[in-house]
Amino acid sequence: MSANTPRLSAPRLRAGAWYGYVLLVALFLMTPLFTLVIASFYDGRFLSIVDYAFTLHWYEVAFASTSIQSAFLNTAKIAVPVTLLSTVIGTGGAVAYTRHEFPFREQFKLLALLPIFFPLLLLGLGMSLWANVTNLGYGILPSVIGELVWISPIVMFVVSITALGVDPDIEEAARDLGADTVTLYKDVVLPLIADGIVSGAIFAFVLAWNNYYIVSYLSGAQSTITTWIHAKMTQGFTPTVPAVSSLIFYSSVLLVVVVALFEYNKSEGDEHS
């Protein structure tokens, strides 16, 4: 690079340094994930990047294992309802907060967004005690309700950001043009905040898919992907662990990239219009 640009000016060098630093931080954040991917394809006992031997064996083992299959299935049984419900619940909260005036509005925001700032350990512990006291029990359903508490506020946050960008007079205009309440929300408000809802739903799915603390306290005898990984990490490592971990990493990357492209296209579109 520097060889191709004979006169490397000081400002360019400084700009390069900023890029370099951010790249370094990004690499730091990605290192463990890259390590997992490297380990997942490695054929051998000790992980060495010098005499690396490639294999798909651990993925085959992972796909063939019934305990891993059932862990994936349980994770899906939790993540899919959590995605659907948290999107509805979070969007409801966002529309109420951003498009309406009502008493105790700020207090409502405080309560509704507070779970985002809670350490998940604390949420998990409290829910575990609560499930015991109320006879809610442990399993798929309690895990779904538990994850909703953390994820619905995040959806509300994401949708609120979009909803606040919509013209505040739009409801009144729609009313003046004769829209009734159902039409107002179905044909005016929801389409305008649809982008935020889709982003929120995808985030909800990824977070539910990756959640460990809450399910570890509420899933009881049911094993999910994250609790399976944790159990294998602390007792009895097998080389399938990196493969399974990589699998959930791939799915997260895919979905986050989809959201990013979606948001990026939208902002590009805004600039052109």
Binding site: T226, S252, V257, A260
Partner: peptide, 22 residues
């Protein structure tokens, strides 16, 4: 750059800590 910084947030803490251990 933003993506590279955000993606780890959406991967289980478990998985990332395990990656560091490896």
């Amino acid at each position: 750059f933003l993506l590279l910084l955000i993606i780890p947030l959406f991967t289980s803490v478990n998985v990332r800590v395990f990656g560091w251990a490896l």
